[in-house]
């Protein structure tokens, strides 16, 4: 099935909730955050947690390699045709915020080739604290930071920490080793985020990605309602 052959209208332009054939498109959730905070590991864990109940796909935005896409392939979290890599020309935030065309193509092509899909995870390349996703690309965004990046990050704020629909503070298991104060991070995050949710997680133990997966299920229920 390809656009233009079976549909009357030309391809969608931006964040239209309906595909050209009138069906509802997949929910798109963006994951952003600094380098090394655990975005790809969170995506992999989400795929494992959700793939039995949902039809899902992933778009990665590697800055200069296909490492993130290849990690997901190696871990076999999804079949290869459900993982697509976008090249970002040395500017990962541009590709998810200022000029989203390549990412829009990637999500639409995934829906065309392996759809119908319930959920597409769009992972940003590791970037800085100001990087956020355009509303033209994703319906909700998760910002992933980690305890080892400094426990003052929630206090410093910035668009990712303050406005993301979900803030994930990752690698809580490392807190004792790097001297990070989780209670302080939690209080600072609450203060910055005006009621938006925060999840503290460790993918190496406890409930792993369960809280984030539950949040995604909630967004999906709202999207399909």
């Amino acid at each position: 099935m390809h656009l233009g052959h079976t549909h009357d209208g030309p391809a969608a332009v931006s964040a239209d909730a309906r595909r050209p054939d009138g069906t509802r498109r997949a929910l798109r959730v963006g994951l952003g955050g600094p380098v090394g905070s655990g975005k790809t590991a969170t995506v992999a864990a989400l795929c494992r947690a959700l793939r039995a109940e949902l039809s899902l796909a992933v778009v990665t935005n590697d800055i200069y390699t296909r490492e993130d896409a290849e990690f997901l392939l190696r871990e076999a979290v999804l079949p290869p045709e459900r993982i697509s890599a976008v090249e970002t020309g040395a500017c990962p935030h541009t590709a998810i915020r200022d000029d989203i065309s390549a990412n829009l193509e990637a999500v639409e092509d995934l829906e065309d080739t392996v759809g119908p899909l319930d959920l597409i995870l769009v992972e940003s390349g590791g970037d800085n604290l100001t990087a956020t996703f355009s509303k033209g690309l994703v319906d909700a965004q998760i910002f992933v930071i980690d305890v080892a990046g400094g426990d003052d990050i929630p206090r410093k704020g910035g668009p990712g920490v303050t406005t993301a629909d979900l803030l994930v503070v990752n690698k809580t298991d490392l807190a004792p080793y790097v001297g990070s104060d989780l209670a302080r991070m939690s209080a600072d995050a609450r203060e910055q985020r005006a009621g938006l949710p925060v999840v503290f997680q460790s993918l190496r133990g406890g409930d792993g990605v369960a809280d984030v997966a539950a949040w995604v299920r909630g967004r999906l229920a709202a999207w399909t309602a």
């Binding site: 390809h2 233009g4 030309p10 332009v13």
Partner: peptide, 29 residues
């Protein structure tokens, strides 16, 4: 072609036109 597709998306949104829509139908990729 990839850049053409991306420009077409931006142009259709910026300057809606039946000619651009027709191009999108003829060249979906």
């Amino acid at each position: 072609r990839r850049l053409g597709r991306q420009l077409l998306r931006a142009a259709r949104s910026t300057w809606p036109s039946s000619e651009l829509d027709a191009l999108a139908r003829e060249f979906p990729k």
